[in-house]
Design a protein around this nucleic acid. Sequence first.
DNA 1: TCTGATCTATCTGTATACAATACACACCAC
DNA 2: GTGGTGTGTATTGTATACAGATAGATCAGA
Lengths: 230, 230
Amino acid sequence: MPTKELRLKPIDSNNILKSKVYDQLKAAITSMDIYAAETDTKLDERRLADELGVSRTPIREALMLLEKEGLIRMIPRRGAFVVRKTKREILEMICVWGALESLAARLATANASDKEISGLRETFVSLDDPNSALAAIDEYSERNIRFHQSIIRLSKCELLQDIADGLFLHMRAIRSHSVKERGQIADSVVEHVHIIEALEKRDEVLAEKLVREHTNHLSEHVNKHVTWVE
Amino acid sequence: MPTKELRLKPIDSNNILKSKVYDQLKAAITSMDIYAAETDTKLDERRLADELGVSRTPIREALMLLEKEGLIRMIPRRGAFVVRKTKREILEMICVWGALESLAARLATANASDKEISGLRETFVSLDDPNSALAAIDEYSERNIRFHQSIIRLSKCELLQDIADGLFLHMRAIRSHSVKERGQIADSVVEHVHIIEALEKRDEVLAEKLVREHTNHLSEHVNKHVTWVE
DNA sequence: TCTGATCTATCTGTATACAATACACACCAC
DNA sequence: GTGGTGTGTATTGTATACAGATAGATCAGA
């Protein structure tokens, strides 16, 4: 729609090769099934350079960024390898994530608008329809992550979002392996509802408590059922 | 002491230029007084390369790592600039830090040994001697940070340490500007003692609560007294 | 046949050359 | 005098060349 004052979009000067390669690699790594491969997958700089049609320089820059994010590990003179998280590391991530999200919930009760909180319901309301069978489990996982990301966002704390995004990145990678039973999902959804209700009541203590318990449940679940690693 | 089986230290294969440059730059940035300079300090790649006696490649690699850590900001075709944190960002850091450290305190009550906890007392016991005047304030700040780092360490959660280290990095940078009165320090020390006592009693709820309150006090203090930024 | 060493190929780490872009200053037009 | 354009310089982004190291293979010796 035309406006009176001219609206100019902020040009993304980040349109440099480094960023493009970084995005591509990140997407590729997170979408691949790390734990399916029996051998460590190595990222060959020259091969990547050839495939992406750029020189090795932007590749190396992107790889270094990915290493700092913990997605890959670079061994001097050996190469870059996709990192497989250990069970211990996964549990640590859930633990830290719980602390961050419970803080986010507390902040959200103060900083989020009513509309934003009620918007959370839409995020997962369609989960209640019983037609979705196991086929929808993958979609549930994605929606589940988005729900938690939303809470983080409602805290209006940018630093929180940055750190949490880094964690979610890894959670996404192990998501497909998480053994989800039907009952587990149902329980999870109920807990989500309770969290939203606590936020709506602006009950910061309750919201924080519920989020922490929710995370603890996930932690126990992973601890019990995840055996495909380590 | 000589042992039966030969003990070999893990050779630091990270001894590559990239890491050296990274360490140098990080130390230089954190030790400099960012907020004293009236203009944004720019990091010239070629100048740095000349001064450190290496080519631009390791310099750029190190700069990129520093950018991801939030210490500098790279603007395409413009250069790298040391980041000055806004007051809002500082408060956010304290907020997140509080959540992480209160989690750490909770974990520490379960994972830390009695010896480790009692070791915390030594960290700041000399603060009680009254001879140290304002001259020791700088040392207090450093010791203060080390105390909090110790708590994080006692949680035995590596991820927690990684994230917290990133935050402490920035805290160190603003430390020298934090207006510390004598009374403020005394209060702080008392709170530290209470935190240690809670840890010794293995009272996870109390320890977590005290750490959070301690952080909140710092947050309020900064919010009130820090006016030299933004 | 197995162990060990040497040699080679390949890949990474570093340096440097080249290209593109942004800022600054000067010059010109109005 | 002011504003705009154009060129020059300096600095970053990208590509490539070179050096060093590692892993695997081949070969010799027991």
